[in-house]
Design a protein around this nucleic acid. Sequence first.
DNA 1: CTGTTAGCGCTTTCAG
DNA 2: CTGAAAGCGCTAACAG
Lengths: 334, 334
Amino acid sequence: MVRMADVAREAGVSVMTVSNVLSERLPVADQTRARVMAAVEALGYEVNLTARHLRAGRTDTVAFVVPSFHDYFGELADKIAPLIEAGGRHLVLERTSASPEHEMAALSVARLQFYDGVLLSVAGLDSDDLERVSSSKPIVLLGERDVPDRFNHVRLANEEGARLATAHMIEHGSRRILALGCTLDTTHMMPSDRRIGWERALRDAGIDVDPRYVVPVANFTSADGRDAMLDVIASGLPFDGVFAATDIVALGAVAALAERGLRVPVDVQLAGFDNLDVARFVPPGLTSVDANHQGVAETAVGLLQRQMEGRPAPAEHVVAPVRLVVRGSTRGGA
Amino acid sequence: MVRMADVAREAGVSVMTVSNVLSERLPVADQTRARVMAAVEALGYEVNLTARHLRAGRTDTVAFVVPSFHDYFGELADKIAPLIEAGGRHLVLERTSASPEHEMAALSVARLQFYDGVLLSVAGLDSDDLERVSSSKPIVLLGERDVPDRFNHVRLANEEGARLATAHMIEHGSRRILALGCTLDTTHMMPSDRRIGWERALRDAGIDVDPRYVVPVANFTSADGRDAMLDVIASGLPFDGVFAATDIVALGAVAALAERGLRVPVDVQLAGFDNLDVARFVPPGLTSVDANHQGVAETAVGLLQRQMEGRPAPAEHVVAPVRLVVRGSTRGGA
DNA sequence: CTGTTAGCGCTTTCAG
DNA sequence: CTGAAAGCGCTAACAG
């Protein structure tokens, strides 16, 4: 391993001068800099980031901690990465829930030390988990649940999104609309908030709210969505619309409806939430609530950078607006 | 910040005894250990991993470096994470290609120092990039291109997979099959290897190979797949089957075919590659070549762990087997 | 503009 | 089994 001292000797300068050339912290004479750079090239030197971190307390790295790497989180991470890099830092992804016993390892104070700041997706974490998270480190929470006041937090307008989607289907003739993947509780988490929006749209239209139309799913996978949809069909409960809590669940519903010969949107209208890529391409196009990934990413990174720059400010709780994207799965679409 | 010295003072022992308790490197008397643990609890101490790394040269962390976080790589990462954690280490994801000038930043020797080992997806990297990658660090390459011999490498049976999918469609009556997302070159990268398999299936069936049926796409997105498919339809080139180089491209083709009123599989059979979740659920079910994520993950992690354990062995070049999963988009399916 | 000194928090080595 | 000393590679602070 070649160290800074080796470069210094090769260039005939002190170690500090090498450090100043590489980190651009203090000005160095052009001629000296050239000698140093030549030595760096000649020896193939690269700075030891661990030593820099220990001494300078800075990693130039931000973590995005997610419950799983795929689908929604992967797409969001791809939006976040360029914004972090524009600030001269590097983004890495960690995941919380690989196995039950390691569930919180990514959030330990020890691991968070690796990063200048942390974006933390709170899906799957409970209040106790959050209380245990270090509060000295710049951190921004993302996700659909109530969090302690002390954290900056960006969430979606879940209720409004669900209301928009449901009202749209009512407007185009549906009267018996399932809330697939929603729950009846009032925990202010994603499945309950979206159920509340669905409910409000029904009430606004003067339609009775029947709790049998709220159908939970286990894990928000397409497989679970399909299973739940097949169960409903088999039960004989009449329905002419489906609001699915996520596009991934909606995709499962699409499969189940097709298997049972129910036509979308003629027999059943269908709308999802998140506006993932798949919503655009699965025939006949899935009407979906756009979660505005880009805007959420920009807001969250902005809040994080404000903290990392050391500008003190009270924690903000941002509710990002959503909008309905109408496609062929509802009768207002193409 | 509470340091090991603080714990030592609180427990009335030396710093070294605390270190030995926490790292379990040397045995410590039960009574002493208990005093140390009590002090750790009382002060809320957590070890500084950066200092440990600088001194001990070990991070207990593995990086999976990918070109983008979504779709294929996200799904694969979710398979890899538990395997790494079973070995007592932690997995993080980094991405290479946020912007052209940062392309190699994640791969710089400097960044690789952060990790005990690296799984590196080679999509988007060329030979020069790979030559520049440190060879002293445990590293396993993943992906569909030729790599220098000195690296351990896991790739898929691309040619065989494409041949299987194409032969299956021929067997069920297609004669004019597009290779969507493939290329005519012979660079031994994913689009060319899959084209070669497509070609072999055609030749085996005595069908002439017409280069007009090889239709490249720009970025392997669904949007590009749809655009390319629409262009082919508009051109009037007759076809009765589509082999798409990836499921994501196939999803774009599904959209385009539906928009133009072409029925799958009656008018056109369609098969993809990767067997992503979406293939199972998009009606009528997408026949796809299963890339065996689980097996690829296990093989790659096994090779990496062999290196990290210091067991010397010549670099291996593994070609992971694939199999065809038949669904409703081809006439052999349900 | 350049060099010297000190020390980030931990673990390796060696002595008791 | 426990402790004291040394130093991993780098940069903050200060002196010249």
